[in-house]
């Protein structure tokens, strides 16, 4: 019993940290983006304001049970993804529930939230929601290819699928990072990370500047608030995952903050610098050079 209570506390702490970090990171990056575009931008704490505002809206509407559950699925997906990743190497507090499964579990649990959300949005009956989902899923299958190749290359390199062991293998100096021991895998993985973050040039799936499409189209009030919370956590989870895979993980929380910030900054820089692909173009893009790089990484492991 005591053990379970301790684990619960640790989980809460871990979640608290990642949520706040994710929200602040989001606010910061929004500002960075604004600076690039020559604006002042929102305050760093704007995400908190948005979430609170949405949760305390006096009215809300829903379209049915699945619609109601959609954001729940989404947030559960975000939370679960994070909880299956050991966030800080060697830390008991941040080891989360990584004993439940290895890298494959994390990769597949990402779908959990996406599927639930897509279903919830689907019940709204708004045609733009499935339109966005269709584009998003299509693009996802494409960027999963270089990512999968990259993960396989790493798994083959270290003969393990356990994230903890992958991080452990990268300890002892910057040159032990996958980024340096297996640069092709890193390149393939980081390109697919761009697709995963849905920034430019892969942003057509949410088309943020025009009419909103995709799952959030019909979401409002606390539903939207929940999605915003998830965005913070899920972003954090993905960043932590990529940090663990390619950049040696983190032995304490500060290193994690620095590394994930830089990874995120990389996507924002790309986002700010490029125009947008059509969906079919991004599919072809991911199945082209990045996939070839991934294959090269895998073939190198086979030789």
């Amino acid at each position: 019993m005591n053990e379970i209570m301790t684990k619960a506390w640790y989980t809460l702490i871990s979640l608290f940290v990642i949520t706040n970090y994710g929200l602040l990171l989001g606010g910061t990056m929004a500002r960075v983006r604004a600076k690039v575009q020559g604006r002042i931008g929102q305050p760093v704490w704007q995400p908190y304001i948005d979430i609170l505002k949405n949760n305390f809206k006096r009215t809300g509407i829903y379209h049915g049970v699945m619609f109601y559950l959609g954001p729940v699925f989404r947030l559960a997906g975000g939370l679960g993804t994070y909880l299956f990743i050991p966030a800080v190497y060697g830390s008991l507090v941040f080891s989360n529930f990584s004993f439940s499964g290895d890298l494959l579990l994390v990769m597949y649990f990402i779908f959990f939230g996406q599927l639930g959300m897509a279903l919830g949005a689907g019940q709204s009956g708004h045609p733009y929601s499935p339109l966005g989902v269709s584009r998003g899923l299509a693009q996802m299958t494409a960027f999963e290819v270089p990512f999968a190749l990259s993960v396989i290359a790493i798994a083959a390199q270290y003969q393990t699928l356990s994230i903890t062991e992958i991080v452990a293998a990268q300890q002892g100096g910057i040159l032990n990072w996958v980024a340096f021991t297996n640069p092709l895998a890193m390149v393939a993985g980081m390109i697919s990370f761009l697709g995963m973050s849905m920034g430019n040039p892969f942003s057509v799936v949410i088309a943020p500047q025009e009419i909103p499409i995709g799952p959030p189209t019909e979401m409002q009030s606390s539903f939207l608030g929940m999605l915003q919370t998830n965005r913070a956590i899920f972003n954090g989870a993905k960043l932590v995952l990529f940090m663990n895979l390619y950049f040696g993980g983190a032995t304490n929380i500060w290193i994690m903050v620095i590394k994930t910030f830089l990874i995120y900054l990389y996507t924002v820089i790309v986002d700010a610098s490029f125009p947008r692909f059509r969906t079919d173009q991004s599919i072809r893009f991911f199945l082209g050079t990045p996939a070839l790089i991934g294959i090269a990484a895998v073939v190198l492991q086979m030789l």
Partner: peptide, 27 residues
């Protein structure tokens, strides 16, 4: 446990139920 990794289906189920129920209750 395999030579490469591990999987605890039961734990995954519990965690999933947990992370699903908490937001649901919140909502």
């Amino acid at each position: 446990l395999s030579t490469l990794g591990y999987w605890n289906g039961t734990a995954v189920m519990y965690v999933t139920m947990g992370v699903f129920l908490v937001p649901l209750l919140w909502l």
